[in-house]
């Protein structure tokens, strides 16, 4: 269920409750928002430990901004994606030159062993390919095709026009296709299609 469909209150309302001292609001907001923030950071950074640091910092900024938050001006998720991406980009710039071999694996999924290995291989392949993209292309591709945001939403997150988003995602996907073209058979996709 998308977070906004939660009938118990919008992100704005929960953030206001948090600012007013409600003890349960932080727990509800964290349960709703932290998975998105952490996943986004993991995908942008390719490093689970660094993603944890970024996610914690992004959420801390949310708590601190809560008393001044003006409902309706921006979506909480949009604001969080922006903060998370900016924190990730800062870290990526600091560690430029790190090789693909040093990029950590994404967190484990939980299917059967064979499936798990194959999924992990696919994740690694995609993550490694994503890591070679320029930061903005990577951010746009992840937001569009993995996080599932619309182009106008991504435009708000990245503070660019929707056309620029389209351009970034198109270029990013072209680059990913070229990088992953030779891996489909290795990763079992062609077998699945044949079967």
């Amino acid at each position: 269920m998308p977070p906004d469909a939660d009938p118990s209150g919008s992100d704005d309302a929960l953030l206001r409750l948090y600012a007013q001292g409600d003890a349960t609001a932080a727990r509800r907001l964290s349960a709703r928002l932290l998975p998105r923030v952490y996943a986004h950071a993991t995908r942008l950074l390719g490093d689970a430990m660094e993603a944890e640091d970024v996610a914690q910092e992004a959420m801390l900024r949310l708590w601190r901004t809560a008393p001044e938050w003006r409902p309706g001006e921006a979506k909480v998720t949009t604001w969080l994606y922006r903060v998370t991406a900016n924190l990730c980009i800062d870290r990526l710039r600091k560690r430029r030159g790190v090789g693909l071999d040093e990029i950590a694996e994404p967190a484990d999924p939980q299917p059967g062993v064979a499936q798990q290995m194959q999924d992990r291989s696919r994740h690694e392949a995609l993550q490694a390919a994503l890591a070679t993209l320029p930061e903005r292309q990577r951010q746009a591709v992840v937001l569009r095709h993995i996080e599932g945001l619309s182009n106008p939403e991504i435009a708000q997150v990245m503070e660019i026009s929707p056309r620029a988003v389209e351009s970034l995602t198109a270029r990013g996907k072209r680059a990913l296709t070229a990088l992953l073209a030779g891996r489909r058979a290795d990763l079992g996709y062609d077998d699945e299609k044949a079967g």
């Binding site: 998975p35 995908r43 996610a55 299917p111 198109a170």
Partner: peptide, 21 residues
């Protein structure tokens, strides 16, 4: 043009197993 069909399988795998907090 962008190889969207080929890539979609990779994206689907990523979406299906988001990193657990």
């Amino acid at each position: 043009d962008t190889g969207g069909d080929a890539l979609e399988a990779f994206f689907e795998a990523a979406r299906a197993a988001p990193p657990q907090v």
